[in-house]
Design a protein around this nucleic acid. Sequence first.
RNA 1: GGGGGUGUAGUUCAGUUUGGUUAGAACGCUUGCCUGUCACGCAAGAGGUCGCGAGUUCGAGUCUCGUCACUCCCGCCA
Length: 706
Amino acid sequence: MQYNDRSNCGRLGSADIDKTVHLAGWVDALRDHGEVLFVHLRDKSGIVQLVFSPEFTPEEICRQSTSLRSEYCITVFGRIVKRAEGTENPNIETGDIEIIVTDMTILSRSDNLPFPISEKAMMGSTNETISREPVSEDLRLQYRYLDLRRPGMQQFLIKRHKINACVREFLDQNEFIEVETPILTRSTPEGARDYLVPSRVNPKHFYALPQSPQLFKQLLMVAGFERYYQITRCFRDEDLRSNRQPEFTQLDLEASFIDEEFIFNLIEELLCRMFEIGGTNLPRPFPHMTWQEAMDKTGSDRPDLRFEMYFVEATDIFTQTRYSIFKQILQRGGVIKGINVKQASESLSKNVLQNEYAKQIVPGFGAKGMTWMRVTGDQLDSNIVQFFSKEEQQTIIKRFNASDGDVILIIADPSLELVNSALGRLRLHVADRLDMIPKDKFVPVWVTDFPLFEPTEEGVTSSHHPFTAPDRIDFDPADQEDLLSLLSRSYDIVVNGEELGGGSIRIHDPATQQKVFAALGLSPSEAEEKFGFFLRALDFGPPPHGGLALGMDRVVAMIMKTPSIREVTAFPKNRSAFCPLTQAPSLVAHEQLAELGLLDLGKAESLPGSDQEQDTIDYLSWVSRIGFEDNERPMIESALDDAVKMAQAVFGIAQEYEPAISVVRGQNCFRKGSSATRSSFVETGALLKNAPSVKGDYFRVASILE
RNA sequence: GGGGGUGUAGUUCAGUUUGGUUAGAACGCUUGCCUGUCACGCAAGAGGUCGCGAGUUCGAGUCUCGUCACUCCCGCCA
């Protein structure tokens, strides 16, 4: 069968009337009227209606057509005709025409489908309605190749391709070159767990899959490429979310002899072009917000600016308050902040505020409670308003810019971090519940001036990674207070409260880099051991440089207006990092493990750097040579637990006895009337000749009860 | 690791609160009829370990406990 002359279903139109066409695709839907049969034929380009009728279709073909079923793969020849008046279908692009079939071949048949594929008349609607009924994602992933037949899903991947192409074209125009960096590499300084790959050639050594190409891209700057980018896979072994997969795609880029402004301009232009592919215009320039401002106003370092409802600082209003809860919190150096939910008194009834928000939702955010006040006229109305003086009430109204119908929500706590976090989540919760977030609105913002370090129990740690440039270099690595006052030259690009990417200007001066390591408590030798190859590169004239990485999955998902990056990933993993289609990850053959030297890792001392304790049950399983399935483990665990408890109980009762291997004293028993006879094979040694070890006339058995 | 939700026909879901006849609906599927449908129509039919396991009970889809799977949130993670 030749397909050279094949046409695309979805591209046919009135201009093609009377032409003879060759089509191939899948049976999207069929309607059998006995004599005449209508088929929607679908290929990548769209849908067109086929007509099988004895008037013009050969008898044999008509007969074959009755065996057609959904998703059969067929090819047809036919003539394009204008549809009779009144039979046009406005729901499909090709609704003005149809194909009179003159020949048809069934290329392959399909089983009954596990879920509907055809989007039928919904073709005309937007992506938001992919199918009329949602199908469980588990099933979709198991039959992903069928899921991906749906036009809506194809659009996601096609648009993703267009976005990738747009990125490559734009960066090429700006003299960035795409360089591939290793996937098998060593652990990089990002904070997440690594995926490890054992090396066969170097037994007991492991590669790490990159969490990002961070060090390599900086080395490319040292190498003098000046502008690099890569659309590359990154890996992090952390729990999954709807916007987090264990492997994900980053647009990673880095440039030399640039500053923050260069990155802002470049990325704004790039993002505008990318969003345009989804039909969205992002207004430029993007607003900026310092990390401090973002935290103060929204309690989050990725503020959602589609709506206001910013935090109002209210601590000073209550310095003289009689309200004992506030009073106590302020005595402990606490903070009081709130938000004004404009014109919400109808939706937020006293009952909702007190019983839902104050009692359940806000405590769920980690705060002890929530104070609420409804504004009626110029009065405050609340369950605790009587504790506040007239002056306090007036100041509250003024400070929160409150008017009739508003609802003021206040959270107080000794910890500023807790107030910010709880009030930030409350802000989002209320906005979502009251439908205050405009649909189809996209508000980007650059968040800058992050703290360089965060405090830890021992000292400080990098907020991003240790190669981020500080805003000043005259700091004292030993002065914790000084360190915590340092800001970094880093920036995150946030859209609608989701972090799409981030980056920084890097340190290119070895002395500064040493100071940062010193601040982190890394001795020169430790730094050498971890990043020696990279630090050495800084000794050879590194250029000033910086860059950024964009989470492509998130960007594409946002452009396509879908909440989950799994929708824009061809073959994603589910929540348990498992692929229902391929059943990965899977057990592997014993021989494979042996070849990789992974069989004798049971004992901690055989694996340098490993300090994990051996699992008791695995050990007992090994000792007793009795295998078990994973689902039997809980049972064995509880049995073992019981055994241990019993042993302890017995030992507690009978401490004077020495523990013995056997409870019953060992002795030989004979049937009544018979006496012990000694086998002649004992004398020759033949009886125990196959025993692994012999003691006297006995052979040893495995000490499975040790 | 912690918390919430869900699990009943191929699919999407009722039924579970308050245990009680043969577990239902829609779509899909199978067969038959139908020459203009496009969510075709009409008629008939098949299809269920009610996630799994224990328990309570005369009796469990329904109540209790455990367990598994999926999913959302927190932790974790740029």
